[in-house]
Design a protein around this nucleic acid. Sequence first.
DNA 1: CCCTAAACGAGACGGTACGTCTAGTCTTATG
DNA 2: CATAAGACTAGACGTACCGTCTCGTTTAGGG
Lengths: 205, 205, 205, 205
Amino acid sequence: MSSEVSSAGATRGRPRSDQVDQAILRAASALLSERGLDAMTIEDVAARAGVGKSSIYRRWPTKGTLALDAFLDAFLAQQPRVDNGALEDDLREALTLWSAAVVGTATGRALVGLIAESQLDEDLARGWIARVMTPVRAQHRTMVDRAMQRGEIPADSDVDVIMDLLYGAVYHRLLQGHLAITSEFIGLVARMVAEGAKSGAAVVR
Amino acid sequence: MSSEVSSAGATRGRPRSDQVDQAILRAASALLSERGLDAMTIEDVAARAGVGKSSIYRRWPTKGTLALDAFLDAFLAQQPRVDNGALEDDLREALTLWSAAVVGTATGRALVGLIAESQLDEDLARGWIARVMTPVRAQHRTMVDRAMQRGEIPADSDVDVIMDLLYGAVYHRLLQGHLAITSEFIGLVARMVAEGAKSGAAVVR
Amino acid sequence: MSSEVSSAGATRGRPRSDQVDQAILRAASALLSERGLDAMTIEDVAARAGVGKSSIYRRWPTKGTLALDAFLDAFLAQQPRVDNGALEDDLREALTLWSAAVVGTATGRALVGLIAESQLDEDLARGWIARVMTPVRAQHRTMVDRAMQRGEIPADSDVDVIMDLLYGAVYHRLLQGHLAITSEFIGLVARMVAEGAKSGAAVVR
Amino acid sequence: MSSEVSSAGATRGRPRSDQVDQAILRAASALLSERGLDAMTIEDVAARAGVGKSSIYRRWPTKGTLALDAFLDAFLAQQPRVDNGALEDDLREALTLWSAAVVGTATGRALVGLIAESQLDEDLARGWIARVMTPVRAQHRTMVDRAMQRGEIPADSDVDVIMDLLYGAVYHRLLQGHLAITSEFIGLVARMVAEGAKSGAAVVR
DNA sequence: CCCTAAACGAGACGGTACGTCTAGTCTTATG
DNA sequence: CATAAGACTAGACGTACCGTCTCGTTTAGGG
């Protein structure tokens, strides 16, 4: 978000300080965890980082985009690859790891806040898709790809739909809060999605 | 939300005016549709309704709860019962109706804003579950109940999980915005959920 | 400046609080004396008065107009009438009293700051003329009027010019700071203006 | 102001560029005329001159001192010597020329802004006296000196007082703005000062 | 002819105050 | 008592400049 590749080699003027980058991200990350996105103000971040407000606005256009970068520091590579040889097992394990990272944690509260904020902040919405959704889906998509290669599910399955069902269910409970995300729930979701996929239901006819 | 039953019959002083109730709701509803929840300020609602701010705060504790009431005016009974004799058809039709009401409409924007806001406003979160989630789910749950009675799916299926998969998928795309909600998508979701349910995957073992 | 006569008797809404008025003026006055107009910030005034910034902006459009009101509290009626029976004596005493109030005092620094600020703030410039220049000149003008009635100076003298010469000289030294305002200087100024007036030089031919 | 004589002959390193000097002064002068001293920011001057901010700060400690140099470019030698053989005539002509240069002109606005700023900037105040007041007064003082040599006014008159009366009056109207500077006003001022001086009123007894 | 120290442009840096906005509460006069 | 109006404290917003500080890049003199 803050990275802008200089087209030419023209680096004129005083270069941005990495220390400042780090100080801001650390402060933002801390406040995000402690108080949530809503209570994280730019002014507090600046004060906590020992930085002028303009140094923040120079780098991030909105609170959300800053929070996204701060969030990624914590969320980075927290979703490891899994491979159990069977689709249902892979799906269950992926969901279990996801829920461990997210349910009842500071990371989870930050994630929910970012989704809420991204409804209002177009920059954030784009960044969210590009830097969270896409990588995480790419990572998890390999589970489904392997199942297709194994012949466990049809080769022409719509992977996106499978992943939307899988993650949609847990995000739904996380965001609406109408029911708890238990291991039983995760087990049922994984089994249903796997069964549905095996039956060829995800093939576009 | 706004109704507070006076415990005794003691109704002293000037009674609350229904006209004021209506004026506030009409103004809130209009602003909600026009500009979204975030840009709908209590001050604007008061001005548009020709009402003092305190008359709003007397009735609703937060912006979100007011917006919820305003939203329900529009959303009320917009989700009709369907019955086609086959689970997949019922699910597809329900999703289709839901998406027609929500995708790209003012109602949809309001719905998304309310979900976002409910992450910050506990009163709203409770109201949202009680007054939107619960009724809509109850209404749609009958589709699954009928399928169980027909023997189309196992009698001990976990209906909540089925519904979370069904609605989770579409809410996911609505909130994350990573992919469009097309009729193909709806078709695949309905088919996969129906197939998964039929295979007995939703039964708690 | 802050007084606005309500055209009708319509006093709707919560009335402005006199306590707030006083608190703001007291704080502004203190800061004006301590640090001068330039270092007197609206934020400091609000903090010192225990008042929201908007309560200041509601009353005064600019820092200058607030400072003017604060200044008048201190300057009010500090320029008493004098009457010695001879124009030169009157002029000298008036200048002496003025310089005592202004040279090397907090009031003087405030006065100089206000004149400087009034070059940038049209509202303040108007207020300064209406509420400082005009009253003070009216008060001192009586000295010249009496001299005309006595026949000491021609009856058709231009009183404005006489006063501009008198006060112009001391303001000049006060603002330019090129030379000190001594009692000798004041004596010479008073004498020259009195002599010039007696010689009929101030009569428009 | 910008000239600093190097004590030894040690002029090592890259010498200051005259082009830069000129570019800064030209930009400052333009902005000073267009928008006044208050709206002339160092940042704008640098941008307009195509110069780094540090090149300005290297030469001038404050905005005021820069503005003074910029002002002098325009004001330089704009106040020519006059000699009519009679004090009153000389005074009137000097005031007339001064008012032509200053009343309602960009130069006048700059002058007023500089006087205002010099109340806050000690460096500027010193520079103002040394580089504007003193030269202009020295120039105009010759009028009074000639009158003394001619015997038109007493030889022991206090020339400073005479000049403070003369210029005090017009500066007063210029800065306070309570009354216009008309040719009638100038005529009366010149006559009164001349008459007062002739009567020996400016002699210290 | 190279060396080196200062000037140069650009622009980042920590600050500060601005004037605006909204929140939610409080205080009037009027119904 | 409810109401419309609007003042109240509080505090974040995003902007604008300040005066200082790094950068990489000239540009001259002195060796």
